[in-house]
């Protein structure tokens, strides 16, 4: 069993991951995690300290061993082929966690490897464990995801996590408001897709107004996306989550962010009761534990 793309998952699959993460949370809280046997290979062809640490920490908590392949995307062109690299590491590990800048790389890896593959991000395409932990965070903090009004805020064009999150929210029947500066809107086909598949209610706006939001999910706007520096500055300023944006919001509204954040959320907001992104990141541990435990189980079944 691989975890390559959120698009491969049904609602039942996602709920199964929730149940597994919940079980891991229970074991973590009780300080009594059932130890497993196995080796996890982490293959990061581009740096992502947080994702790697999160997978490694989750593996450690499960009692798994970690072997780390230190690769760079340039090694794809020069040295050994991607296929050979994957096949070799496949011989060393029971689970492979891969992050690679080329889109579809994890899918290809899963075809070369016997071991289950966890996609830790393939370029601008998918990062399914992030989407699962985001949804798990919503379920844990808010209960019924389908009852939520979620604002996705920032550069919705380039943020890979946002496209999958929109899909996941659609799956559970949540209402979504897309708040993006002009030119950085969510891709047309991603919106059409969820409207058709889930009959999802999606509103698009450039105006920030969080009063009706249960959840505000923020992502970063990079200056490099703009040719005009002045425009970049004014857009960044508007999309910085200032304390005044939080006046009159629902008491139990929460702010999430995939991290790392730079300056899109100022320290005053970090200190507010709404800021939940560090808890969100922490939920990556039980979710990734659940994912790896499921993978080990399926690998054993395959071997008989």
């Amino acid at each position: 069993m691989d975890l390559i793309s959120f698009r491969d998952l049904s609602k039942e699959d996602v709920e199964d991951y929730f149940a597994r993460a919940e079980e891991m949370d229970r074991q973590l809280e009780a300080g009594n995690v059932e130890k497993l046997d196995g080796i996890v290979a982490t293959m990061f062809f581009e740096p992502s300290t947080r994702t790697k640490l999160s997978f490694q920490s989750a593996a450690e908590r499960l009692g798994l061993q970690i072997v780390d392949f230190v690769g760079s995307s340039s090694s794809l062109k020069k040295g050994e082929s991607f296929e050979d690299t994957i096949r070799t590491v496949d011989g060393y590990a029971d689970i492979i966690v891969i992050r690679h800048p080329l889109e579809g790389s994890a899918r290809v890896a899963s075809e070369f490897a016997e071991a289950p593959i966890a996609n830790g991000g393939d370029g601008g395409n998918q990062h399914p464990s992030q989407t699962l932990l985001d949804l798990y965070t919503l379920k844990k903090m808010k209960g019924d995801i389908g009852a939520l009004n979620v604002h996705l805020v920032g550069d919705l064009k380039h943020a890979r996590t946002m496209r999958s999150l929109l899909y996941g929210l659609g799956m559970f029947g949540a209402k979504v408001k897309l708040v993006a500066p002009s030119g950085l809107e969510m891709a047309r086909d991603a919106i059409a897709d969820v409207k058709r598949k889930f009959e999802m209610e999606v509103e698009e706006t450039e105006t920030i107004d969080f009063k009706d939001a249960d959840v505000v999910y923020v992502c970063r706007i990079q200056e490099e996306r703009f040719e005009d520096k002045y425009e970049a500055m004014s857009v960044k300023k508007k999309f910085t989550i200032k304390p005044e944006y939080l006046q009159g919001v629902k008491e139990d509204m929460i702010i999430l962010h995939p991290l790392p954040k730079i300056d899109e959320i100022p320290p005053e907001v970090d200190k507010s009761k709404y800021a939940k992104y560090f808890e969100q990141a922490k939920n990556g541990i039980p979710m990734r534990m659940g994912i790896m435990k499921k993978m080990l189980g399926s690998a054993r079944q395959k071997k008989g």
């Binding site: 794809l76 991607f82 296929e83 690679h100 080329l102 889109e103 579809g104 393939d122 059409a192």
Partner: peptide, 25 residues
């Protein structure tokens, strides 16, 4: 898309009148 960098057969599936790449999606 990895299909333009590795020796793998291109793959597409029809999705609402357009084709979705089996790799980069």
């Amino acid at each position: 898309c990895i299909s333009n960098h590795q020796d793998v057969p291109s793959r597409f599936a029809l999705d609402n009148g357009e084709y979705r790449c089996g790799y980069c999606e």
